[in-house]
């Protein structure tokens, strides 16, 4: 992990909807190549925060820069330098695997030559060569999610945002998915991930836990468990989230 270079810098980032404060003065930094877990109970404000970081929603106050670009004024540059996938947003179900890769490659402005080599690489890595001409809709969920992640980092973004990427996926595929995440992080892509699986929280370099719109704790899993005096992330989460006042 290359220390020093900060790809996400948030300073008192806040989002209000009327008199409801969805995200309340969150401050944190994420290093290049880091796997950062962004946890919190339903309604704690994770989605709102993530939307602001992706340049999809303008903050009410505070500062944030993503890959060096300002979330208020440079949202277009931000979008060009990040990747995004969620459990809901997947690929086009009625296009084939290959067509999806080509389409998203085109969207991100890769040349035909680049798309061709990338497609080849990606199909080999995922073992999807024989499925290249199959409709994405006919693939099992786990494969779709792996493919979806690979497509999200097709253009070698600085940061990739993953919103509950492994929900409903079987335990073996879930681990294969995490292998892909590790590989991407090795290459210097920063991973920003939310999950409800507490064992996945352990795979992150550092995690933050949000409660009622605030980041309550932020540290490595090991340090968090030590400071709470418990043996699993599950218990850390439980202790924190139990005090939450609001739901979604």
């Amino acid at each position: 992990m290359a220390q020093g270079e900060k790809v996400i810098v948030c300073d008192k980032l806040t989002k209000r909807f009327g008199d409801f404060i969805a995200t309340n003065e969150i401050t944190f930094e994420v290093n290049k190549g880091e796997i950062f877990g962004f946890l919190g109970a339903n309604g704690a404000g994770k989605t709102t925060a993530m939307r602001m970081l992706c340049g999809l929603s303008t903050p009410s106050s505070g500062k944030a820069s993503i890959a060096g670009f300002d979330v208020y004024t440079q949202t277009e540059q931000i979008k060009r330098n990040i990747g995004y996938m969620s459990q809901k947003f997947s690929l086009y179900e009625n296009l084939t695997v290959k067509e999806n890769i080509e389409f998203f490659g085109g969207i991100y402005g890769l040349t035909d030559q680049q798309i061709e080599t990338k497609t080849e690489e990606l199909l080999n890595r995922l073992g999807l060569k024989s499925e290249a001409k199959k409709l994405v809709g006919s693939l099992p969920l786990g494969w779709k999610q792996k493919l979806s992640f690979s497509v999200a980092i097709l253009h070698e973004p600085k940061i990739v945002f993953l919103d509950e990427p492994t929900g409903g996926v079987d335990p073996v595929t879930r681990r294969q998915f995490w292998d892909l995440i590790y590989e991407a992080a090795e290459r210097g892509i920063t991973i920003f991930v939310t999950t409800h699986y507490m064992d996945e929280a352990e795979y992150c370099n550092r995690i933050s836990i949000m409660v009622d719109g605030r980041i309550e704790v932020l540290d490595s899993p090991t340090n968090l468990k030590r400071s709470f005096g418990v043996s699993s992330m599950d218990e850390v989460f439980y202790q924190l989230a139990r005090s939450a006042k609001r739901g979604d």
Binding site: G40, A41, N42, E164, G167, G168, H196, M198, D234, F237, Y238, A241, R242, A244
Partner: peptide
């Protein structure tokens, strides 16, 4: 419990 946080699940 799908998509529900660990506390509510418990």
């Amino acid at each position: 419990t799908t998509g529900v946080d660990p506390v509510s699940r418990k």
